[in-house]
Design a protein around this nucleic acid. Structure first.
Lengths: 114, 114
DNA sequence: GGACATATATCGTTTAACAATATATGTCGA
DNA sequence: TCGACATATATTGTTAAACGATATATGTCC
């Protein structure tokens, strides 16, 4: 397992939390979400389009997001997503789950020599 | 994506860190590692045997662990694994990578209303 | 008009955790 | 003695999420 695939696997469980969090403050479109993830993490984390767009579709299918096409002159068409009430509830759950998981990893991995 | 599969995916990138960490202090066998993960995390994290044993084989194949069969009367045979020098180096990398990842997630997801 | 950022779409590949199942031994109580 | 349970390792096939690659299309800037 390369460092790269570790990074890939690390992302698997956290992607949903990332998207929901970024939509908490208001609607955003896919490309914007992608760039936010990169810039806020200083490049440490990024999602490829072949991961991000299907993830948005899944979240919409599950009723956590609602998408809306917006077309303006001088811009490519964009699909803006906003959190549904169910999405907000799930965000709360995902934050709790992530915190608990990080704590569990710390409990397991902290050195015994400390 | 169910809560259960999220938990599954969360584990994907962290399993290697867990194993390497638990072998830092000395050799352990697979079943022991499995129980340690459960007890130290108070049941929050556990790996099934169909995940754990193949992972140990992969780590040994990659030269990060070295396994040794130990048979004692009054006990089932056990395979004890210890960290190789390469495994210790990898452990350092995995700790750094995990910390960086957790920080990145925090940077991306922290609420904008704070 | 050429390079690059913006913006979305999708096929096929990879791979790690797991459910299920199997084998085998030791312990403890009824 | 027999059944239940913990200990201990092994393996087959399934599932699902990120990604590489590729595609389409528009806006900007030199």
């Amino acid at each position: 397992m390369s460092d790269q695939s570790i990074q890939r696997d690390l992302k698997k469980g956290s992607a949903e939390l990332l998207i929901l969090s970024l939509l908490e403050a208001g609607p955003r479109h896919g490309y914007e979400i992608s760039k936010l993830i990169e810039t806020r993490s200083s490049g440490a984390v990024s999602f490829r389009v072949a991961s991000l767009y299907p993830l948005l579709y899944r979240l919409e299918d599950r009723g956590l997001l609602q998408g809306r096409w917006v077309e303006k002159t001088g811009q490519r068409r964009r699909r803006y997503y906003r959190l549904t009430p169910a999405g907000r509830k799930m965000l709360v759950q995902r934050r709790l789950g992530w915190t608990a998981f990080v704590e569990a990893i710390r409990d397991i991995t902290e050195t015994e020599y400390a």
